[in-house]
Design a protein around this nucleic acid. Structure first.
Lengths: 211, 211
DNA sequence: TAGATTGTTAATCGATTAACAATC
DNA sequence: TAGATTGTTAATCGATTAACAATC
């Protein structure tokens, strides 16, 4: 597995490149220039070349880059090969949406268990997973060597859920609610508001009068 | 309405400040120092002071900032007052999750209509909205002066949906799927992958060996 | 006054972009 | 060769941070 760590900005552009390159590959394109990629993904062509440089992907002057070579290079960097088990707490709409995102699978993350507090949800099938009660978390954490949990419960339940997860041995919590979670000893907490980027965009559109 | 446009970075920090300040206000705190805020939201205290400067929020040296004053200032900047109507296409899990985010409401965005192609979903209640068929989009766009639509359909349907929306008079599309949408004349398209930030964080954790 | 904390400047850091020689 | 496009350097831009005088 590629060991270098890139900034979020670079990784973001990388996913955009990948998306566009897959489209090209689908229609049988062999090479692509930084100019073309620039037009398609709206990133300055010099920046693209510099990115490709840091990814150690090289092209042919006067010709461009090999589409398939870039795709396999990028997939390697994103780390699709190595599987990482995570669990998901909260089988509501947001949780269900997360289960169904193939982007997670595509990036090598496997949802090893889905949990919910709501007795009515337990035993139900969501996506291709069966919802389990919270007291099963510990077992799954041990059995599947899980360190990371995504919290997608109602904001009001976020803090409680985090504390339960900490007790069950979870080391990293991705808080996918809009509530702040108080620090817990020995646990890394990352809050990611699910609509944040949507809001930024809307905010921008509103201010510029386009929305 | 405050007319200045701030960068996504600033707005992101602003929402974090707001979240923390509300907590303080709830427990009756009157003032807060940039140091305290810094500890709570993990942003350098100098940066916080500079942010507050650009927001034209002032404090008292040796004391700190007034909590309530900051809150109302920030709400003003985010533009909660002025309502903007938008529509949502796609009443699946992701769509339902979007409807239930009060963050949208809190920032002054009103979902004026929810639409879906799937005949089985039409007429059903999702959140507090009734799902309508796609051929009603035009009507709602006209009646409620809607320019902006959020697309939360399966990736495979994104392009088609965008084209239909363009025909119905939509000017701005927020593509909340992981598919790329080809440019459409007269329409601004913004793609926001719903799990992107989640993936970045996971990617980072994986590479550092913490996940 | 003494201690704390703001307001603000200047330094640093990192990311983006322009430009162009190298070379296919 | 002529045209195109990479690879790479240097310039620019913007965001973050350290530092500290002003002042509550």
């Amino acid at each position: 597995m590629e060991k270098r760590i890139y900034t979020p900005g670079v990784i973001h552009r990388l996913s955009m490149y990948l998306r566009y390159l897959s489209q090209l590959d689908d229609v049988g394109r062999i090479t692509v220039s930084s100019r073309e990629m620039s037009d398609a993904v709206n990133v300055n062509s010099a920046e693209i070349r510099r990115d490709l440089l840091t990814f150690k992907a090289s092209g042919k002057r006067g010709v461009g880059y090999d589409v398939k070579a870039l795709i396999s290079k990028f997939n390697e960097i994103i780390g699709t090969q190595e599987q990482t088990n995570i669990i998901l707490v909260g089988a509501g709409n947001l949780g269900a949406a997360i289960i169904n995102f193939d982007a997670l699978k595509k990036h090598g993350f496997v949802i090893a268990g889905v949990f919910d507090k709501d007795a009515r949800k337990i035993g139900k099938e969501v996506g291709d997973k069966i919802v389990q009660p919270m007291d099963k978390v510990k077992e799954v954490v041990m059995d599947s060597n899980v360190k990371t949990a995504i919290i997608a419960v109602p904001s009001s339940a976020a803090q409680n859920t985090a504390e339960e997860l900490a007790k069950a041995g979870i080391k990293v919590i991705l808080n996918y609610t809009s509530a702040r979670i108080e620090p817990l000893p020995g646990v890394m907490i990352q809050t990611t508001d699910p609509v944040e980027k949507l809001l930024h965009t809307l905010y921008y559109l509103k201010k510029t009068g386009s929305a």
